[in-house]
Design a protein around this nucleic acid. Structure first.
Lengths: 218, 218, 218, 218
DNA sequence: CATGAATGAGTATTCATTCAT
DNA sequence: TATGAATGAATACTCATTCAT
């Protein structure tokens, strides 16, 4: 309603959302182009063409090519986080949380393979300049998973092994999976891949009792 | 006895071994520089400086920067192959072959982290131009491992699951491991990493009987 | 009235004439430098220096050195055409048209010797890539001259010889003249050269009657 | 007979002709390659390949690329001279000498179009460094032709015009003819071209009496 | 806010020439 | 004399960034 009585500035009021929408559009375009061509070969002009704006406009929203690229990577990691959170939302059973998280992770990269490419390019170009955006994020979320594992061990549902061993192996197998998918053009569905990983990992970490109950059906 | 009847050309005879030795030296230097700086930032001049020769000399042996880079990657893959072969040499017990192969693989990349970097750069720069040298090689060796797994299943030592599931998960976890090592600067020893992977993978794939016998000691 | 209803894009409007003026300035400078140094030795930087702009600006208007060079040649041929057209403008007497055209041709190259040099360089560098700009143009204008000659023969003013013989010999002698001027540094005035050529050519092609009337005065 | 009693050196006697034959072979190969690619694009290595020798061998016989090129041009001019001399050999009738010289000239370039290309490249590359080999030679031979023309005028067989006018126009038309042949790919036979030139030139320079006698037959 | 003309540092590759054998 | 490995100067073109309009 804009029904405030406050002094209304003359002229066309600044549209607040506009700047944010622009940034988002630019990041989307940048993600596509950077993923396709890599950092070096991407000409800012190409991003501008893709949006049908002038090069200068890009520089209004991002101070440099580097910031634009890192912004795109950051956006990718945030979207991954949201997708995994949504996957485990309202799931309280611990093993099911693990299962849903793995599925959501693989599904996300299956639907957004270009994000994997951004990760590659980030490491290839910025190795020395910056800690990986992806792993920075992972470090912030790993603690909760360790607690969840600890609970399972305390209940005797998992073998008594260091929780880091479990989280490391799961993380590594997932990371290796998406990279291999991307590098080899492997087309296996994310459901099948999640199933393969869960079969071996759950057999690998559960206690004999839990495994007997849980895995017998297959 | 150089006394062959073949017409010997006049002038300084071409020294056969020289070219091969030179190529090897150049590839070694190129591996180091490419790994450190990436493909784009590497100036052939830097490789030349490192060898204390002129830039033209590099171009004597490699027709282009691209060929030099791909030659370095190829050499890396070949050396990995040799290291893994040496690791499993004369081991006939199947589970031990798997164990030794995994250890050799992780040890190789622990000792040659620059090769991981070359893989990254290869994908980042040559995605569309070329199939990955690493995966081309893997495709040629995977069959033997499938046969080995099949034997274990037939003997009832492994659970009856598709052999591709096992090879895929093992490959992916290893690939994820070396990439994560490289991306995060993780410093865990290769022995500890091999142990973590083997613990979960062997628990994950062995039959109940084999697991009972094999894993009880730990 | 800029008040068109067409959507006017925001930002600095593109100035239409600017690009054309710039192109012309650049071609002028390029003609001078290319003529002086030849194609290979000409560094685009030299053209830029001559205009006191940056190298990138040249590349803004011409995609490559080759296109810039060929643009300069093309401009030279067009200016020759204009000069000859101006020379025969409103002359209807056929022999006088020939005379004026020959004078205009020789005068043009006397005043623009650098254009001859461009022709040399074009052939020297682009022999296989391109038909000569000069001869492409000549092929388009030769027909009119043939008709004019045909008329003279029909009126009994010229000997009955193939019109191609006349046009070929005239063209070749003119082409040879400007090349020899350029190659030897010959400094004869264009008027004297035109006179020499016309004396022999007109004596060579006119009918006895026309020659008697026309040439007696000298 | 080598019948000198002078001290004969030990070892294999130097074969005198060999060096000259080598030079000639190299110039022949150089002519072909330079004509095809131009001066800049010609790599000495290509000339060496064409002869199946090493690059260093070329440098034994010619101190630099420039000397090799100019040597090839020089050889071309000498061969032209020989061809024209052979054409007029033992011809004493002046007009016939002119006719034979023109025919020999056009025939030579018809059979050796690559020599025209060398002339182009020489001018394109060495404009400032060197007087044209071709015109240097022409200056040495033109005097004899002027005397011949003077004789014809004295006998009343030619119109009384400056002999330089005649030699200039003939030279220019011939030069223009071979350049146009080369530039346009014109395929007219040298006999037809000689006939065209002679028809117009002789009509253009002969006195009325001589023309009446000589040209009536056609 | 948006535009796009202008800038100029940065880089892979070629090839004439040398010289040890 | 012939060879060919080694040298290193020379050069066209790209593109991130700025800024006047």
């Amino acid at each position: 309603m804009e029904a405030t009585d406050a002094k209304r500035k003359p002229g066309r009021p600044r549209e607040e959302g506009l700047a944010l929408r622009r940034r988002e559009e630019i990041l989307e375009a940048a993600t596509i182009i950077f993923a396709k061509l890599g950092y070096r070969l991407t000409d800012i002009q190409l991003v501008a063409n893709h949006l049908d704006v002038a090069k200068g406009t890009i520089y209004h929203y991002f101070p440099s090519k580097e910031q634009l690229f890192l912004g795109a990577v950051d956006r990718g990691v945030k979207r991954l986080h949201i997708a995994v959170e949504a996957g485990v939302h309202e799931i309280s059973e611990p093993l099911e949380r693990i299962e849903k998280a793995i599925r959501a992770y693989l599904q996300f990269f299956s639907e957004h393979p270009e994000i994997v490419e951004l990760f590659i390019h980030e490491r290839s170009e910025f190795r020395d300049r910056k800690r990986s955006t992806y792993f920075e994020h992972r470090d912030r979320t790993i603690g909760a998973w360790h607690q969840l594992m600890q609970g399972l061990i305390a209940e005797g549902r998992c073998r008594n092994i260091p929780v880091e061993r479990v989280s490391t192996v799961i993380n590594d197998v997932l990371y290796g999976t998406i990279f291999t998918n991307y590098f080899t053009g492997r087309k296996t569905s994310f459901e099948a891949q999640a199933h393969d990983v869960l079969d071996i990992v759950f057999h690998g970490i559960l206690s004999d009792r839990e495994r007997g109950e849980r895995m017998k059906e297959e």
